[in-house]
Lab assay of single mutants.
Amino acid sequence: IMNCCEQCGEYLPSKGAGNNVLVIDGQQKRFCCQSCVSEYKQVG
């Protein structure tokens, strides 16, 4: 599985992206930055 930001689609290095993760309905959603997390929450 490719690690990509759920919001902008930016490729995420394998281990460096652990900071910005949401778990929604048991699914891990990865993000490249906190602003993408916030945007995803607003839209979702």
Rank of each mutant, 00 (worst) to 15 (best):
E10G: 04
E6D: 13
N19K: 04
S14R: 02
A17Q: 10
D25Y: 00
Q7W: 06
G26C: 10
V21K: 15
P13L: 02
G44C: 07
Q28V: 07
Q28Y: 04
Q7C: 11
C32K: 02
S38M: 11
I1N: 14
Y40G: 13
V37G: 06
K41Y: 02
C33F: 01
E39M: 14
L22V: 12
Q7R: 12
V37P: 08
L12G: 03
P13R: 01
Q34P: 11
E10Q: 02
V23R: 12
C32N: 01
V21E: 14
G16H: 05
E10K: 10
Q34H: 12
G9E: 02
G9F: 12
I24Q: 07
Y40A: 13
K41D: 15
M2A: 07
Q7K: 08
L22C: 05
G9A: 07
V23E: 15
N19W: 06
C4K: 14
M2C: 04
C5G: 00
P13W: 01
S35H: 09
V43P: 14
K29P: 01
C36R: 03
C32I: 00
S38Y: 00
L12R: 01
S14K: 04
N3D: 11
K41S: 13
K29Y: 11
V21R: 05
Y40H: 00
Y11D: 15
Q27G: 11
M2Q: 08
K15G: 14
G44M: 13
Y40S: 14
G18V: 05
G44L: 05
Y11G: 15
L12W: 02
G16P: 07
N20M: 11
G18R: 02
C33T: 11
F31S: 05
N19S: 12
G18A: 12
K29E: 05
V21T: 13
C5F: 00
V43R: 11
Q42W: 03
F31M: 04
K29V: 10
E6P: 05
C8T: 03
G9K: 01
K29S: 04
V37H: 00
L12H: 00
I24P: 08
Y11I: 08
E10D: 06
I1M: 14
V37C: 12
C32M: 01
E10C: 00
G26F: 08
N3K: 05
K15T: 14
Y40L: 07
R30D: 14
S38P: 04
Y40I: 05
N3E: 11
N19P: 03
K15M: 15
G9L: 04
M2P: 03
Q34V: 13
Q34K: 06
Q27E: 09
C36M: 01
C32W: 01
C33N: 07
C36V: 02
K29I: 05
A17W: 02
D25K: 07
S38A: 13
K41I: 01
S38K: 11
D25P: 02
V21P: 02
Q28W: 02
D25M: 03
Q42P: 07
P13N: 01
V23Q: 15
Y40D: 11
Y11C: 13
C36H: 03
Q42K: 11
C36K: 08
Y40E: 13
K41T: 15
C5T: 01
M2W: 01
C32G: 04
N3F: 11
G26S: 10
C32L: 02
I24M: 08
A17R: 01
V21Q: 07
V37L: 11
R30E: 15
C8A: 01
R30K: 15
C33G: 11
V23I: 13
V21F: 00
K15E: 15
N20E: 14
Y11W: 05
N19G: 12
Q42G: 13
G9T: 12
S14F: 01
K15S: 14
Y11T: 15
G9P: 01
C36E: 03
Q27W: 06
L22T: 10
D25R: 06
Q7L: 06
V37Q: 11
G18D: 15
S35D: 15
G26M: 03
G18Q: 00
V23G: 09
E10R: 09
M2N: 12
S35Q: 10
D25H: 14
N19D: 00
A17G: 09
S38H: 07
G18L: 02
P13T: 09
K15P: 15
C4F: 02
K29H: 13
C8Q: 01
D25C: 05
L12Y: 02
S38Q: 12
E6Q: 08
G44Q: 02
C8F: 00
I1F: 04
Y40K: 11
C8E: 04
G18E: 15
C4D: 12
S14T: 09
Y11S: 15
I24Y: 09
Y40C: 15
V21C: 04
S35R: 13
C5S: 01
S35E: 12
K29M: 12
V23N: 08
Y11F: 08
C4V: 11
L22E: 12
L12D: 07
C36T: 09
C8L: 00
C5I: 00
D25T: 10
N19A: 13
C4N: 15
R30M: 13
G26N: 14
G16W: 04
G16V: 04
C8P: 00
Q28A: 08
E39L: 05
K15F: 06
E6N: 05
K41W: 03
E39G: 14
G18P: 12
Y40R: 11
M2D: 11
Y40T: 14
N20H: 14
N20C: 12
G9H: 00
Q27R: 06
V43C: 07
Y11A: 15
K15A: 14
Q42T: 12
Q34N: 11
G16A: 10
A17D: 12
K15W: 08
D25V: 01
K41E: 05
G9Y: 14
E10L: 00
S14W: 02
Q28E: 13
N3P: 03
Q7A: 09
E6C: 04
Y11H: 15
N3W: 02
V23C: 07
C8I: 00
S14C: 10
Q42F: 00
Q34F: 11
G44P: 06
Q28I: 11
L22M: 01
S35G: 13
C36P: 07
C36Y: 02
C5A: 01
E39V: 13
C33M: 06
I24N: 07
P13A: 00
Q27V: 08
G16L: 06
N19M: 10
Q34Y: 01
N20W: 06
D25A: 08
D25Q: 03
Q28S: 07
L22Q: 11
K15L: 09
Q28H: 14
S38E: 13
A17L: 06
C33L: 03
K29Q: 04
L22W: 06
V23D: 12
S14P: 15
K29R: 10
L22A: 10
N3S: 08
R30L: 15
N20Y: 10
Q7N: 02
S35P: 10
C32S: 03
N3H: 07
G44V: 08
G26P: 04
A17S: 12
Q28D: 15
Q7G: 08
G16T: 15
C32T: 02
E10I: 01
P13H: 06
E6A: 06
G18M: 06
I1E: 12
Q28N: 04
N20G: 08
N3R: 01
C32E: 03
Q42A: 14
G16K: 00
A17I: 02
K41L: 08
A17P: 04
C4W: 05
D25G: 10
V37W: 09
K41F: 04
I24A: 12
C5H: 01
G26W: 03
K29L: 10
G26Q: 10
C5V: 00
G44W: 06
S38G: 11
I24K: 10
N19H: 07
C32D: 03
R30V: 15
Q27C: 10
S14E: 14
N20I: 06
C8W: 00
C32V: 03
Q34E: 14
C36S: 02
N3T: 05
Q42S: 11
C4P: 08
I1W: 00
I24V: 10
S35V: 09
L22S: 07
I1P: 06
I1R: 05
R30G: 13
I24L: 12
G16E: 14
V43G: 13
R30H: 02
C33A: 12
M2L: 09
E10S: 03
L12C: 03
C4G: 09
F31A: 07
Q42M: 08
G9Q: 10
C33W: 01
F31E: 09
K29W: 02
Q27K: 00
K29N: 02
C4L: 09
Y40F: 03
M2E: 14
N3G: 08
K29C: 00
E6G: 07
Y40P: 15
K41R: 13
